[in-house]
Design a protein around this nucleic acid. Structure first.
Lengths: 333, 333
DNA sequence: TTGTAGGCGTTATCAT
DNA sequence: ATGATAACGCCTACAA
């Protein structure tokens, strides 16, 4: 393996000297010594032990990202953003999936703390009336006390800084856009029950409908493709068809499109469909949606968490979103 | 924070005793002592330091997964499989994306080794004539020497065990299926140049074509949606339309579908399209494809890497794949 | 400019 | 059954 001790021996210098040249200390070292140490290190393939270093510095060059579901492109985009700046700063990004369970999040957070990670980024939204909220908050407090920086990328009842975008406004905007297309009967397929993100998006939808003097038409759903597909089947089989349907996210919206088409209903000819987030599959499928600043969320979060000095404790940032009209919506005739 | 020392003091026992009860040592400890230690630990919110533990045991409860691209659902499925068993075994899964660069892979591997991770799983395929192959192999050797278990989930010229599925056969099977539908002019949109996976899939396609007495028709591509889209545009604009097009993976195939449709060419009415992998988006879009055992790859890999004893060094496993006909292909008329 | 030595939190080896 | 104590690899005053 090769430790500092091995190197110092091989180079005929003290451990201290070896350490100094190998970790860019500003303590002066003669060129000759430096040379010898560097050679020895190269020959032995020296790699500093994170453990030993962490033991004395109290930190590890790791930033944790806790997501709800790795397969969900929503989180993939965020993770990419984090990785981009983390890598550039010499940090390792540690991604872990909590399967939308607060308990799993707590476990991961604790593990990350035990690792002495520099910081932890929560990418998922929280639940209203979460029975584990208290415990999570406590775990977060412990992590922060031990020096870790904790950040949230969505609405949670957590006492810690956040970087987000306005989900409610995003839903409002897409709804408003669909209204502007001349549609009247506009349905909304909701997300998982009790998740803040679902609530906010639904609220945005309802607000836009109310502003247009229209009655809301809400259906149960989820965050995955299947939820949209099932809802569409249901809608197709039930009463009169709506003019348009908005999914709580892209995957659901795509599910809606597929469900509708499988029922012989053309999109957008008979029903317009739109999503929220603008993840990759939305581009694939030509889905009209709202672009959420996912990648930027990751970028920004990582920058804050990995900042040299925790100086400018940034209260709460909100990044902008943007409407992306594509081909699953069309003007009402 | 609370260290073993704090606890032992508070409980009025030795550090050794505290350690014994807190880490499930099989060394006997009286009920009374145990009780006191447990209480003290609870009161102080004790959490063992991974660093200190790693320093003495030489290992960290971490399993690294190095993927080519987090956003690619191919890797997401694998990662999920790994996480499933790792979590269950008390390990942390550390996902890192190498952006399909061998150099980045080397960096990540080194970092993982420095972390003293239990094992490292390479999810990406390798390049032929990789200028960094030598260096990678060396990094792998170093990692293995230092006790880490290294595993590969795709073809690479690396001296280390692997768990894979037969990409060539998968491509052969899907091609054969399309042939069986009665199509003759069948094109193939290839993956990134020089990647083993691309080569194998293309070879499988060509073999099936040859077996059917058909001439292959290959187009440059990549692994992402855009590659398929562009290729489709090109194909649509160029000569006579093929009867069917096979994409090197699902994303490319979906890109082909969208590209074709945007050029006014109906799928599957005029051209059939198929992919490989059966990732989530394939289900979304009703794509005919071959189901690759991605999740199972992750499961199996994690089980091997995290096995108690490295006893049954399993040479090389190959998992089965399966044809999944859906709605982007139809019988020739 | 170089070296010595203490300590970080655990585990494991030896006593007791 | 319990307790000292020596590592583990590194950083960092402090000394020379």
């Amino acid at each position: 393996m090769g430790s500092l001790a091995d190197i110092s021996e091989r180079a005929g210098v003290s451990i201290a000297t070896a350490s100094r040249v190998l970790n860019g200390s500003k303590h002066p070292v003669s060129a000759a010594m430096r040379e010898r140490v560097l050679n020895a290190a190269a020959e032995l393939g020296y790699a500093p032990s994170f453990a030993a270093r962490a033991l004395v510095t109290g930190r590890t060059p790791i930033v944790g990202v806790i997501v709800g579901d790795i397969v969900d492109p929503y989180f993939a985009h965020i993770a990419r953003g984090v990785e981009h700046v983390a890598g550039r700063l010499g940090y390792l990004t540690m991604l872990s999936s909590a399967h939308r369970s607060t308990e799993a999040e707590i476990r991961h957070l604790r593990a990350l703390r035990a690792t002495q990670a520099r910081g932890v980024i929560f990418a998922s939204s929280g639940y209203t009336d979460d029975p584990h909220r208290q415990e999570l908050q406590q775990a977060v407090d412990e992590a922060r006390e031990s020096g870790a920086r904790v950040l949230t990328l969505a609405h949670r009842e957590l006492d810690c800084p956040s970087v987000t975008f306005d989900s409610r406004a995003a839903a409002y905007d897409i709804t408003d856009y669909v209204v502007s297309l001349g549609h009247r009967r506009i349905a909304f397929v909701d997300g998982p029950k009790g998740l803040f993100t679902s609530l906010e998006r639904c609220a945005g939808y309802e607000a836009a409908m109310a502003a247009a003097g229209l009655d809301p038409l809400r259906f149960e759903g989820g965050f995955e493709y299947e939820a949209g597909y099932d809802a569409a089947q249901h809608i197709a089989a039930a009463g009169p068809l709506p003019d348009a349907i908005i999914g709580v996210n892209d995957d659901v919206a795509i599910g809606i499109v597929m469900g509708l088409r499988s029922a012989g209903i053309e999109v957008p000819e008979r029903v317009s469909v739109a999503g929220i987030n603008d993840t990759r599959p939305a581009a694939y499928t030509g889905l009209t949606t709202v672009s959420a600043p996912l990648y930027e969320l990751g970028l920004t979060a990582a920058r804050i968490v990995l900042a040299e000095k925790g100086a400018d404790e940034p209260s709460d940032k909100v990044l902008p979103h943007q409407l992306v009209p594509r081909s699953t919506t069309r003007r009402a005739n």
